[in-house]
Design a protein around this nucleic acid. Structure first.
Lengths: 217, 217
DNA sequence: TCTTTTATTTAGTCCTACCTAAAAATATAT
DNA sequence: ATATATTTTTAGGTAGGACTAAATAAAAGA
């Protein structure tokens, strides 16, 4: 049985391991979890002892199959609870993160699966992230980052990479939501900002914003 | 902010303090929480330090107003989650306890109150226990224990005092559920068993069972 | 009342998960 | 290639929350 803290480490490694298949560094984990590198080393040793991660001193860490499944099931719970909060309890997408961080650690197989059914087996959370199934698998829809598109093309906003309250509030303020049709009009080379059109309005978004928005073509 | 462990102690004192208004003993708490008396003493000191309990060495412990409110809000969450599990997620009343024990510690005011609304502001949990409101208050309906009734009288099963899985499974097996009309037929002096009638069937229940069933007249 | 039993508290440990400071390994730069 | 900087690990320590064993207070019995 994994502790709350162990689950948080596994989740961090899971997320960090996604982009680039190689081992995750101690410092990267420390930064993600907001803890010190020495604490990370301690915990990694414990997780290695439990066969949840592969660990070679000074060479970083990666999840074993068992560790990956454990992490995926935590992520599954997190995202299902987010859907519940938004769809059933009137939370807005910028309010769900902290509560879901707590709910994701509740241990009950029946609870997760009944919740899944109650919500109608959703495939994505309110930020467009895919929800792993009972076995930890999901199908990644290949959405494209705005910065990688060509001017003149359009798509449906389907994934918001940054789920921080601050960023989501920015999107709310600018009336941008998942499912919106967005047309990329122009790239400004000076500051890498992008002009987009949605709901018959044009707005300019910074590179930092564009980086976090992905469209389905 | 209270920790999970502190909340469990407050809850135990809250429940133990209900019957008989005097101070709760260290041993009683230890038994309820399934821990050792010495651990209880440690924790009580901490709670007294935080002004959540009144404590005099060797004289037992009682809740302060702040402690009682904190405990009541944990109980409120516990019972609301039980209603959710039974009404929305197809849990039976004997399956909810362990999960609710976890869910009761989730910290989010909005979550509790939205859940309350989502469930239609229920007043009682699946075992007939009253659900405290935002301020920790509830109205105790004065249901009567079967052992205190007279033969020939009847009422509606409205409170099951023992919420253990074993006892609830016994009730299921004998087709007894909250809301059933029960008529008390006879008291057997030899072993204090009781003959009752419900749904046109007569069954004999032991004193131990009868002790845990209360009816609304 | 005095003694025995029971309840409670204290003293000293342990484990988890964190920390700081120092040491060791790896990576980078000249 | 060697010196410097960065990353990672080790060593040692802290706080929360549990434990055992021993000491002390309160309650019960003779």
């Amino acid at each position: 049985m994994t502790t709350l803290s162990e689950e948080n480490y596994l989740k961090a490694i899971y997320h960090l391991g996604k982009q680039g298949e190689k081992a995750v560094s101690t410092n990267a984990i420390a930064e993600k979890i907001e803890t010190k590198a020495s604490s990370v080393t301690d915990m990694i040793k414990k997780l290695a002892e439990k066969n949840l991660v592969n660990y070679v001193k000074y060479q970083g860490v990666s999840l074993t199959n068992e560790g990956r499944l454990t992490a995926a099931l935590v992520v599954r719970k997190h995202r299902l609870w987010e859907v519940f909060l938004v769809k059933k309890l009137n939370f807005s997408w910028d309010e769900v993160h902290d509560v879901a961080e707590q709910l994701e650690h509740i241990k009950s197989l029946k609870l997760v699966n009944e919740l899944d059914a109650f919500l109608g087996f959703p495939t994505h959370d309110p930020h467009g992230d895919p929800i792993p199934d009972k076995d930890g698998n999901y199908t990644q829809t290949k959405s494209v980052n705005i910065l990688e598109m060509e001017a003149g093309h359009e798509g449906v906003l389907s994934l918001v990479k940054d789920s921080s309250e601050m960023f989501l509030k920015y999107l709310n303020k600018n009336n941008l939501a998942l499912g919106d049709v967005i047309k990329v009009l122009d790239f400004e080379p000076f500051d890498n900002s992008v002009t987009i059109q949605t709901k018959n309005k044009q707005i300019i978004i910074s590179q930092q914003v564009a980086k976090n928005l992905c469209l389905n073509l």
